[in-house]
Amino acid sequence: MTTSLLWRPHQAAVPVAGRPGAFPVRRVYCVGRNYLDHIREMREGDERDDPFFFHKPADAVVPDGSAVPYPPQTEDLQFEGELVVAIGREGVDIGPQDALDHVFGFAAGIDLTRRDRQRECRAMARPWEAGKSFDHSAPCGPILPAQQATQTLSGELRLSVNGELRQHTSLKLMIWDVPEIISHLSRSYRLMPGDLIYTGTPAGVAPVRPGDRIHVEITGLPSLTVTIRPGDTHASQ
């Protein structure tokens, strides 16, 4: 006989623009090294490798308008503005020509990163989880259904901090475009409705501190704004 839990685990969900209800989050995949200018600013070379992926917890997703606490165990919290792909149809070993058929919609996102922890992990050839996979680390704006996001994949991304433009790119400069990302990822994982894919960031990443307001705009999509607030366990607060 199985004993039920006394609590219900939190189910992260993202609002869908123009529709009631929300998109329940199953998994969060993130693409690393997907803009050449960002690879260069991180001093990681110029090679076009196969895409690689890491994960964030599903409950790291927080919606537009959130006050994100400054996380513990870092003195270098950095923003990474990204296009987010929401998967709406199951698939495995998907061909690039069929990949967009599996997309429910698109959103603006931020991959918050404990850069000092990430660099330590990289120096020791360890997984990036300490730098990437922490609470509140995956802000995501409202999802616009794919059939309405007709200009997005050929559009631009802009991220500003306190009104100052910090990142600006064409999404066409991604090393691996959205169909290629979905195809490569589906070779290793069965993609399912509820999966989110953060597609990588361009150059311009930099630290933020409590009180900073981060705003992301992507062509044709609802914008995303979060504010960094003091964290309960951050040593400098």
Results as ranks from 00 to 15, higher is better:
Y189R: 13
R122N: 09
F79C: 07
D37Q: 09
S160N: 06
E47M: 06
G194I: 04
V103Q: 07
L83G: 05
L171V: 09
Y198H: 12
L159A: 03
N162G: 10
T227K: 14
T113S: 14
F53Y: 03
E164A: 11
D50W: 05
L221S: 00
G21S: 11
V85H: 01
G194Q: 02
R33G: 08
Y189G: 04
E217A: 07
I181K: 04
R187C: 14
Y70R: 02
P69H: 07
T169R: 05
R8Q: 13
T225S: 10
I94Q: 01
V92D: 14
S137I: 02
D111A: 09
A130R: 12
V16G: 04
E82L: 04
I110H: 03
F53K: 03
S236A: 15
A138L: 05
P51D: 04
A99W: 00
R187W: 14
R158M: 11
Q118C: 09
L185A: 05
P139S: 10
R122V: 10
I181P: 01
T2K: 09
Q78R: 15
V14Y: 01
V14P: 01
H215L: 02
T201G: 06
S160V: 03
R8P: 05
F52P: 01
E180I: 13
Q151V: 15
R89D: 13
H234L: 07
L5M: 08
R166K: 14
D232W: 11
S4Q: 08
R8G: 08
